[in-house]
Amino acid sequence: MVNFVRSFLKDETGASAAEYALILAIVGTGIATAAWTLGDNIKGAMTTAATCISATNAKPAANC
């Protein structure tokens, strides 16, 4: 077991292109999901703000 740990720590081989592609796919998916969610939240906030601004009656909407 000690020899395995030593050899593992001394191993200097790099990641292959397939591993880099997998990491890129995972990170890209995370970024895309975060951007999509953020976009939806911003859209909702803008819709709410537009509703509150364009309200013509004296009583504002419930979420203003």
Rank of each mutant, 00 (worst) to 15 (best):
T37I: 11
A15T: 03
A49C: 00
A21G: 06
I53V: 10
T51K: 09
L38S: 13
T13E: 13
L38Q: 11
T33Q: 03
G44E: 09
S54H: 06
L9E: 07
N57Q: 07
C64V: 03
A25G: 03
N41A: 12
C64F: 03
G44P: 00
G14I: 06
K10R: 14
F8M: 14
G39E: 01
I53M: 02
I42S: 07
C64D: 03
A61E: 09
I26E: 14
I26S: 09
A32W: 02
A50H: 05
A45S: 13
S7T: 14
D40N: 12
I23E: 13
F4W: 09
A49V: 05
T51Y: 01
V27L: 11
L38H: 06
K10G: 07
T47K: 09
I53L: 08
G14F: 11
N3Y: 10
T29W: 04
G14L: 14
P60S: 02
T37H: 08
N63E: 13
L9I: 11
E12I: 11
C64I: 05
E12P: 00
S16D: 15
A25F: 02
V2T: 12
T48K: 14
D11R: 05
G28Y: 05
M1D: 01
T47D: 12
A18V: 12
A18K: 12
D40V: 04
G39A: 04
N63A: 14
A25V: 10
N57M: 01
K10S: 14
C52T: 07
P60F: 02
V27A: 11
A55W: 03
M46Y: 02
A34C: 07
A58Q: 10
K59A: 12
